[in-house]
Design a protein around this nucleic acid. Structure first.
Length: 260
DNA sequence: ATGGTGGTACCACCA
């Protein structure tokens, strides 16, 4: 089972990149963020041509999440329970015995911003949701653009980013609380090279200089993480013409046949 | 200092 996450920063602009990547990487499930499409404009046919089903929750201009999958999704949810929000950032679905939550976590803008408070509230609501999900499902994957760099080694210049949004102790503590529910950062299950990132600013040649941050995560429940054999960032799509500012991240799970 | 979107033909908002 190959599971992937990719913030595409407009699916309209990036559709061919996504289609090419589906063909070459062949994931079983791909979570997309920042589709920036209303549901009536979602390119269902273009994915069906490649043998993929779609589930999506979009809005005009901002946000928007989708799950592209070999098998159709069931038990779809588009909100965190008990947290009403017009922003489309959540897509939960079940594939066989696997529960998937695809997320576009609020960015937070800056620590002084109201958007930072919204981010922390949202993360608290997510934690409650995940506590319930983990009690209900054994195999859970929570993935997406977390807009949190888990540790200093996930940032190109930790000193410059110290206490800045995406790197504050409050955000990192919120992520830690989520992991303590019984979720593992799949990327850190393995020995990794240094300076591996998943997002690079479009400005100042940040990608060429590898000045990025690792903010796109795949978290797996304990039983699932024992079946994880690899977790990698694929930087190839970031090198293309007119790329997303994020690269796809994927993980492989060697599950018993009944779960695939 | 880049890029996507959407309202208006350059600019505001968001990342």
């Amino acid at each position: 089972m190959k599971i992937a996450t990719w913030n595409v920063n407009s699916l309209r602009v990036r559709l061919e990149h996504v289609r090419d990547w589906l063909t070459s990487a062949a994931p079983d499930v791909l979570g997309l963020q920042e589709t920036k499409l209303t549901d009536d404009k979602f390119p269902v046919r273009e994915f069906a041509e490649l043998g993929y089903h779609c589930a999506f929750s979009g809005q005009p201009t901002y946000n928007g999440v989708a799950l592209i999958s070999r098998e159709p999704a069931t038990e779809i949810v588009t909100d965190l329970s008990g947290y009403s929000d017009i922003q489309r950032r959540v897509l939960g679905a079940t594939f066989g015995d696997l529960r998937v939550l695809n997320l576009y976590v609020p960015n937070g803008q800056s620590v002084a911003s109201e958007k930072f408070e919204y981010k922390l509230e949202w993360l608290a609501a997510l934690t409650a949701q995940l506590r319930a999900d983990l009690a209900r499902y054994e195999h859970v994957v929570v993935m997406g653009d977390f807009n949190i760099a888990p540790e200093d080694r996930d940032v190109h210049d930790p000193a410059a980013w110290q206490d800045k949004v995406l790197c504050t102790p409050k955000e990192r503590a919120a992520l830690k609380r989520i992991e303590e529910l019984g979720l593992c950062d799949a990327f850190r299950l393995f020995t990794q090279a240094e300076n591996i990132f998943s997002w690079w600013d479009y400005r100042a040649a940040a990608f060429r200089r590898n000045r990025g941050r690792r903010i796109d995560l795949i978290l797996a429940s304990v039983a699932l993480s024992e079946a994880c054999t690899i977790c990698t960032v694929d930087t190839a799509p970031r090198r293309l013409e007119r790329p997303s500012d994020h690269a796809p991240v994927f993980a492989l799970f060697e599950l018993p046949p009944s779960l695939c």
